[in-house]
Write a protein that binds this DNA or RNA. Sequence first.
DNA 1: TTGTAAGCGTTATCAA
DNA 2: TTGATAACGCTTACAA
Lengths: 329, 329
Amino acid sequence: MKFNIKDVAKKANVSISTVSRVINQSKPVQSKTKERVLMAIEELGYKPNAIARSLKVKHTQSIGIMVPDIANQFYPEVVRGIEDVANMYEYTIFLCNTDLDDDKELKYFSGMEEKQVDGLIFMGNILTDRLAREMKKADMPVVLIGSDHPDLPSVTIDNTLAARKAVEYLLDKGHRGVAVITGKMKDPMMGRARLKGYREALEKAGINWKSEWVVEGGYRFKSGYEGARQLMMLEERPTAIFVASDEMAIGAMRAILEKGLQIPQDIAVVGFDNIDMSGKVYPSLTTMGQPMYEMGAIGMRLLTKYLQGEIVNDNKVVLNFELTERESS
Amino acid sequence: MKFNIKDVAKKANVSISTVSRVINQSKPVQSKTKERVLMAIEELGYKPNAIARSLKVKHTQSIGIMVPDIANQFYPEVVRGIEDVANMYEYTIFLCNTDLDDDKELKYFSGMEEKQVDGLIFMGNILTDRLAREMKKADMPVVLIGSDHPDLPSVTIDNTLAARKAVEYLLDKGHRGVAVITGKMKDPMMGRARLKGYREALEKAGINWKSEWVVEGGYRFKSGYEGARQLMMLEERPTAIFVASDEMAIGAMRAILEKGLQIPQDIAVVGFDNIDMSGKVYPSLTTMGQPMYEMGAIGMRLLTKYLQGEIVNDNKVVLNFELTERESS
DNA sequence: TTGTAAGCGTTATCAA
DNA sequence: TTGATAACGCTTACAA
């Protein structure tokens, strides 16, 4: 049996407004009547209906999160960051997996709008114009995490700088033959930006670019594995590989180890992201870390600012990255 | 600017009821007027307000998911399973991280009730009586995944049988010195049940139980690492370790490798869960796999049955497990 | 300090 | 096939 505010009003012998007032503490209520109301609530096991409330007050205290795939190592950590600060601000989160599918993204976004989320956090490799337009049209704040767009707030790191630093680290260790397994070329951040960083590092060091030393990967283990095998078949074998994601890097390491080669003696590898597992594999992975939890937390904090109507002066926050040196280099 | 059904009614020169009818296709509408309505919707960029709808129809097409920690390797995969079938049935999901904290569990559950979720999926190591009572009281279906309770539907595997099989596998390989790193003893499934399986296997094989060969772990990498170190310091060193979770097993492997020992030649290890990473580490991990994605998918499917008022004859589904043999054994 | 009543954006009943 | 209108459970003027 489900009771509503009317039931408790009747039971406590007051009007529904005073019940509302004690629930929300929105206006003073005489302590005696308040007690009666509380009693009634207790006895009936009454729970306020947030849906009805939302309809009236025009906000839901819910926000949407769109991620490519929660089962992909990278995202759970940032979702956790989001969740933690969302809870501090009393928001609960709707989670959607887009699989990087444009239609799903559009559909879910629309669904979130209909469910009247107060705001939304979007993660995805590339933000289509179509979706960006929808986001602008919708009158709810959206913040991007890990990707970027001229007229939307976002939190990111400087991917090309981070990649450059990673490669420079390898160069500083004396490596001259540094190959790269990168993200998809159509992907601005993980693909092009990180490759650009690689190229910049080489240029600055006066090292020639060898096109056979750059292989385009996906993001998963398998493509790192295959990329490394391909690289090792070259007559001039690289002595180090910079890999644009940790999961690929772990795949690359396996390929190297299977070949009977030693890491880092024969080939050093440095990854990107610093997912949880990168410190746990053997050998542990040196990696250019993104502050995933912070990206989530800060992204959500940014969102709350819009939600609360605070003025925000900087809607593009770019966070620091940090190289974690481990055994693989 | 946000428009409502009234706005489109005015624009299309019809009543709000006919607008509602074309949106929901709940009653025939003359194709000509339907067209007008569709035009108006299009022009205004109207999106129906699901909150208002929910208030009226008394369901929200939302369900809640409570997990200990989405950043923990095990859960994203089952959440993904849940999500996929939830979407097939047009539900969207609220995600909550409980951190295994009783108060948070209670609080979030209450919050989900207020938000009028149509149902809820709970994951947690142990279901407190307090929470179980709340679940019974609430008039919404709840299904448990990975844990169990006499009067709640659930989907699990037979943890003690699975553990026994894992240990028997080791025994069959000729190991006589099989140690175990288990879950917390207060945890019925991952702790006691899996330890029980270990014991049963030993008994059946006529092998003596050595209390110094069982160490109680948490679930994380570190406790596996430490557990293995402890085990290796014994004067009679085990030749195999059964570890009650993959993450701990990966920690155990690292401890073994660091010690300069070989896996599986010196010590074999088999884990539990078959998380994604267990096939990617080096050496790859033999593990007793839980069908995580399926547990999620089937759990959600079970929930939809309650949601749709289907009669369900078996509210305790126990799934098959499967040993995946890899390099660590 | 308390109560009455309008209204939030829908759906659904009833009548036309 | 369409339109008026009550109702869903709440908050919030406004009045008492």
